[in-house]
Design a protein around this nucleic acid. Structure first.
Lengths: 354, 354
DNA sequence: CTGTTAGCGCTTTCAT
DNA sequence: ATGAAAGCGCTAACAG
């Protein structure tokens, strides 16, 4: 049997209350007594039973997820994953709230963070906007003892406990490598469709992509970035115009959202031959893959990110360690053949039981 | 506050013990009383606090992982993941044991399963050998109320609760698709290196690969399978001979283990131009990717599989539902650019914090 | 058939 | 500065 607080109390010749004080670093214990208890803890190899502790505390962890509003399908999918986790979270003494903020709006995000601090939550997860005022708000949260993780998009220098997302530089390089291999010796330039160069992820992906294309040699031309603001209509117009202006175009790297427009433009122009690489498995990209318009999709698993964020927030709130390997978000590569089947209404994976 | 057993007891006008009997489907309650309690449960929207229940039960879940012995690096990595999880599992009221059996040995596996049943474990995870006697042993385990999951390799018709592994047919198709795209118009045949055609995963992967190569058109020739028994030395010899016999060889699909030999043979022959696709991120395949000898590696995340197996076994043992999306094991595609950094000694992911 | 009572391992008043 | 005792939500004897 694992040693308990009683064992420590007996071994150290003190009461349960004193053991608890030492265990939780609370004041009111003489240094000598503390030392005695700590030695007992050490010698017995005691590890706290977190479940029992939480039961005694009657503690629930109120967490807040701050997510951009709008039509970006990836963000909506992310939110769905949060709500799914929230349903199940009651089992785990966690209460999860979702807060919306306008996308790319640093002041609004900072305000939302401060509101969460005022509410006295145990942890905050937010899709970060890379701005000093946001970093300052995160600093205030941490100062208040609130765990903070950034989700999907990180920000430069800040006190966040953890970043739940992928290495976007590597993602861009991966896209570049696939593009180079898929095109092989085929001539023609490559276009890049982004949301906005004001966003950190997009900048990093572009950087990685350009770097790899340069290293790959062959002198393939990468055209100037098309900024579609992550809006399907703008993306469609931009890509349509690009296809006209560059009839020899060989590939398109779409590193943001708005992919419904991209697919529409390609199909309208009858350019199924263009090699297309996009990001995130969503309705449009899934369809694009299945119809052969998109050749590969790089993905970050939103469900994994959300569950990871919850685990990390709870661990940090408890002062517990984190399993790094489980929390690292991979850059998934999907082609038509390894695309996972969508779940049916009951949440049952058809593929898993096939 | 969430309703508790006390609330139910009060509402139904019965004692705690009766509520508990109803909750756990134990006998000794009149139908009317039962109905009254059930109504109270329903109306209050009661959900059991599993942590508290386990605390009260003092229950630990003894689980057994049955893993093939031998030098297969993937299996050794799998075992390492089990041991890692075991270390951390004390936090979660789970005790994990590892049992070794000779690879591909159905009678030995069946015997190990029966031994675990006799020990009265709560759940068993095993890398299955596809044989009737194994299916029978699994049936006995389930009959004894023991949760059972197959790990990595499933078997035909059996009563296992769940399969923790990938769709190997899809994996083979994925390999085929990548091979076809990477080779493009380049002429030359493709070789396949397998462990043994007696193993189910390998058969399925081959089937998927061949199917896709046929569909891809271009009439690319797929040579007869080389069976290396997952042993590096045999693989090296077979591949070496194949390279001599087919100087125009364009690609190799390695669907089993023994990849150290494959890489060695290719490097010895100076055939870095051959397009190579292999399975599982292990020491040899990681090196192969980094050195450019291997072009892509399909992977199943052993850590994910193990953690998933534990979650599923515990959930099944508790009669709890399972989050399908979290338990589905993806077919990961890795190329040099999206290969995750290995962990350092402290278990910290270098990439995640970079 | 049903109720009482004493814990599981930990935290938390309230005394001393 | 330290201890005693009463729970947290649930289960498990043991009585009725």
């Amino acid at each position: 049997m694992r040693p308990t607080v009683h064992d420590i109390a007996a071994k150290a010749g003190v009461s349960l209350a004193t053991v608890d004080r030492v265990l939780n670093g609370r004041p009111g214990v003489r240094a000598v007594t503390r030392a005695r208890v700590e030695e007992a803890i050490e010698r017995l190899g005691y590890v706290r039973d977190v479940a029992a502790a939480n039961l005694a505390k009657g503690r629930v962890y109120p967490l807040v997820f701050i997510i951009p509003e709008g039509e970006n399908p990836f963000m909506r999918g992310l939110e769905a994953e949060v709500r799914l986790a929230a349903t199940r979270s009651s089992f785990e003494r966690t209460r999860i709230a979702v807060v919306h903020v306008p996308p790319f709006d640093a002041p609004a995000l900072a305000k939302a963070i401060d509101a969460a601090i005022a509410e006295g939550v145990a942890g905050i997860a937010a899709v970060a906007v890379d701005a000093p005022e946001v970093a300052a708000a995160i600093g205030r949260a941490r100062a208040a003892g609130i765990a903070f993780v950034t989700l999907v998009s990180d920000l430069a220098a800040s006190a966040r406990d953890h970043f739940c997302g992928v290495d976007n530089l590597a993602a861009g390089r991966t896209a570049g490598s696939l593009m180079a291999r898929f095109l092989g010796a085929r001539p023609g330039a490559v276009a890049v469709l982004a949301g906005s160069m004001l966003v950190r992820d997009h900048r990093e992906r572009l950087e990685g992509f350009r770097a790899l294309m340069a290293e790959a040699g062959g002198g393939r031309q990468v055209l100037d970035v098309l900024e579609g603001q992550d809006e399907p209509e703008r993306a469609r117009a931009l890509v349509g115009a690009c296809l006209v202006a560059h009839p020899e175009l060989a590939g398109i790297y779409s590193l943001g959202a708005g992919n419904a427009g991209l697919v529409a433009a390609l199909e309208a122009a009858g350019r199924g031959d263009v090699c297309v690489i996009a990001h995130e498995i969503t309705e449009p990209t899934r369809l694009g893959l299945e119809r052969g318009v998109i050749d590969a999709v790089l993905n970050q698993d939103a469900g994994h990110e959300v569950r990871s964020a919850i685990r990390v927030l709870r661990a940090k709130a408890d002062g517990l360690p984190v399993i790094a390997a489980q929390e690292r978000i991979r850059i998934d590569i999907f082609i038509k053949e390894n695309l996972p089947q969508p779940l049916d209404e009951t949440g049952t994976a058809r593929a898993a039981e096939a």
